Amino acid sequence: MAQQRLEFWFDFGSTYSYLSAMRIEHEASVRGIAIAWRPFMLGAVFQSLGWQGSPFTAQPAKGRYMWRDMARQCEKFGLTWTQPSNFPRRAVLPHRVALVAEDKPWVGEFCRAVMSRNFADDLELDVDFPQCSRHLRAI
């Protein structure tokens, strides 16, 4: 019987995607489920709705709640958390790498590294960094 697969749709700049991306493979593996990593650009969705960026920046009260909630959730799940100094961050390069590598065995590791870079290390994403270079050479 074929192993069940769960499609995980996410954006590297999404706070709540971070909570899921950092835990999903472990949770799925204990249940015998494989993960299909499916990056997409949430900013394009917002733009198609006529929004100017994230609802968390457009609605200050919603944004303040989300930042508090992220700190609480990361503490609950034991995840490193640093509120990004630039939000939301552009992530075209890592999205491209993840898209062309979606069937590679290292795509989950790569996606978690990008998420950590954003939400744990507070570093830019749309630049070449070691994980991008290494994995681009492997493709």
Rank of each mutant, 00 (worst) to 15 (best):
R31Q: 15
F40T: 08
M115P: 02
A36F: 08
F110D: 00
G50I: 01
A71T: 07
M41A: 11
H95F: 09
V97R: 03
V97M: 06
P88E: 07
Q73H: 13
H95D: 01
S54E: 03
F110S: 02
Q47P: 03
Q83L: 01
D69P: 01
I24A: 10
F87M: 06
R112L: 05
K62Y: 12
D103E: 12
G50R: 00
A34G: 10
A58S: 14
R90A: 10
G78V: 05
T57M: 14
P60R: 01
R72M: 10
E27D: 08
R90G: 08
A36Q: 14
R112Y: 02
R72P: 03
A58W: 00
P94I: 12
G32C: 04
L93M: 14
Q73S: 14
P55H: 07
W37G: 05
P94W: 13
V100F: 13
P88C: 01
V45I: 10
A58Q: 15
L93I: 13
T82S: 14
R72Q: 13
F40S: 04
Q59R: 14
C74Q: 10
F87E: 10
R90Y: 10
G53D: 03
I33H: 06
P94C: 08
V114S: 15
P39Q: 11
D103N: 13
G32T: 04
D69C: 09
Q59V: 13
R23L: 10
F46S: 04
K76T: 11
Q52G: 13
S116Y: 07
A36L: 12
W106N: 08
C111P: 03
S29T: 11
V114F: 05
R72Y: 11
A44K: 08
R23D: 04
E102H: 12
L79T: 05
R68P: 00
C74K: 09
V107Q: 00
S29C: 06
F119Y: 11
Q47H: 11
F40Y: 14
V107A: 01
F46T: 06
E25Q: 11
R96I: 12
W106L: 08
G108W: 08
Q59H: 15
N118V: 00
R90C: 05
V45H: 05
R64G: 06
A101Q: 10
N86W: 02
V92G: 04
N118G: 06
G78Y: 01
L99Q: 12
A71D: 05
A71R: 03
A91R: 05
M70F: 09
L49K: 14
A113T: 03
T80L: 11
L49H: 12
S29R: 13
G43W: 04
Q47L: 02
I35Q: 06
W106V: 05
L49W: 12
P39D: 06
Q47A: 14
P105C: 04
A98H: 08
W106F: 13
K104V: 00
A101M: 15
T80S: 13
E75G: 15
M70D: 04
G108R: 09
Y65Q: 09
P105T: 08
I33Q: 08
T57S: 14
K104Y: 04
V114P: 03
W37E: 08
R90K: 13
C111T: 12
Q83E: 12
R64A: 15
G53P: 02
S85I: 03
A34V: 05
L79M: 04
A34R: 09
